[in-house]
């Protein structure tokens, strides 16, 4: 037996380039560097109204709803499923909050009700997917299509259109701050840690990945795949519930038609940028948050840049394509091969 050689530089480089966090981090760094040139003072952080204030804080602050939804999505995608209904769940949660506040419920009860509505939506999705065995994309499409209508109906219960409200508790959770730190970042950290413990410190994560990898094999191995799928949609519903609380309290109105429109697409994108595979079998929670940060950094950059709004979506598409190309082994190898041929 020979002693293992000290890792060479190229070996280390290979190790680094093959680490899944490298490429999304690189993309994030590139976007931030561009921002530094485009928007002077982009990296300045000051204290305004007793809390941290600056574009970087904005990015973290605004990424929270997408990141929350993406965490739930990561678990669902881990089971080889997908949850298209998250935006609609947020709409229903928002309408419920506005309605219950109008009815005069105590606000901590409303918080619990709102999260309960998220869970209830997850229960519905889980029933369709795990019990009735409907394909996830269609099963969750049902709530995606109908949810915003349900939200409008709830608003109509008391005759409100875009009803607005005040709630010290809910607004405190969304736009308030504890010390210098925005409360929603703390809420997010708490949800993240709880989910991480649940996924990585119990067997649930392993079961989810087993079910996503091969549900039949997992079943034969004694994993109750239906139950695992069910719990994934519940987690997604609860995460969307939290996002709904934060988004609704942010503008303190219920606007079911447009709140969190297309958030499901950003969430799926965050999971994929984070290295998740739509074929299931993997969950990367931390990487998913990184993916959400890449997306929000891009969004904030576009808003800061002064670019005409007609180009917003185009710029976003080009940058996302760039990030995905960076992550693609095949694309990188093709570019490398091209460069080598040129040299010769």
């Amino acid at each position: 037996m020979t002693a293992p050689l000290p890792p060479s530089f190229s070996g280390r480089l290979r190790e680094l380039t093959s680490h899944r966090a490298t490429w999304p981090l690189l993309a994030l760094a590139v976007i931030l560097v561009v921002d530094g040139f485009v928007a002077p003072g982009f990296f300045t952080i000051r204290i305004v109204e007793g809390r941290l204030f600056g574009s970087l804080i904005d990015i973290l602050y605004r990424a929270v709803p997408t990141a929350l939804v993406a965490l739930g999505m990561a678990v669902v995608i881990g089971t080889k499923g997908i949850d298209l209904s998250v935006g609609s769940i947020i709409a229903v949660v928002g309408a419920t909050i506005a309605w219950r506040i109008q009815e005069g419920d105590p606000h901590f009860v409303i918080l619990l009700t709102a999260l309960g509505v998220g869970l209830l939506c997850g229960l519905w999705n889980g029933f369709l997917v795990a019990v009735l065995d409907i394909q996830p994309i269609i099963a969750t499409l049902i709530l995606m299509v109908s949810g915003r209508g349900i939200g409008l109906m709830i608003n109509l219960i008391y005759g409100g259109t875009n009803p607005s409200f005040t709630s010290p508790l809910l607004q405190g959770l969304s736009v308030g701050s504890i010390g210098l730190v925005p409360t929603r970042l703390i809420v997010f950290a708490a949800v993240f840690v709880a989910l991480w413990l649940l996924i990585r410190r119990t067997a649930l994560g392993l079961f989810v990945e087993a079910v996503g990898g091969n549900a039949a094999a997992a079943d034969l191995a004694g994993v109750r795949s239906r139950l695992i799928k069910y719990s994934a949609y519940l987690i997604s519903g609860l995460c969307a519930g939290w996002a709904g609380v934060i988004l609704t309290a942010d503008t303190h109105t219920s606007d079911p038609v447009s709140v969190a429109l297309y958030i499901e697409l950003d969430a799926i994108l965050a999971v994929v940028i984070g290295g998740g595979s739509l074929a299931g079998g993997r969950i990367y929670l931390g990487m998913t948050v990184l993916g959400a940060l890449v997306i929000q950094t891009l969004t904030t950059s576009i808003l800061m840049s002064g670019l005409p709004p007609e180009y917003n979506l185009l710029v976003k598409a080009v940058v996302v394509l760039f990030v995905l190309l960076l992550q693609s082994n095949n694309a990188r190898n093709a570019v490398l091969a091209l460069v080598r041929r040129r040299k010769r």
Partner: peptide, 25 residues
Amino acid sequence: KTQSGDFTTEGGKKVMEAFIKATDN
């Protein structure tokens, strides 16, 4: 400065937040 807020409260708030940072309050 001009940006689209998609006719929504949420959109208007996000865009104004960015404008506030971009124009030093």
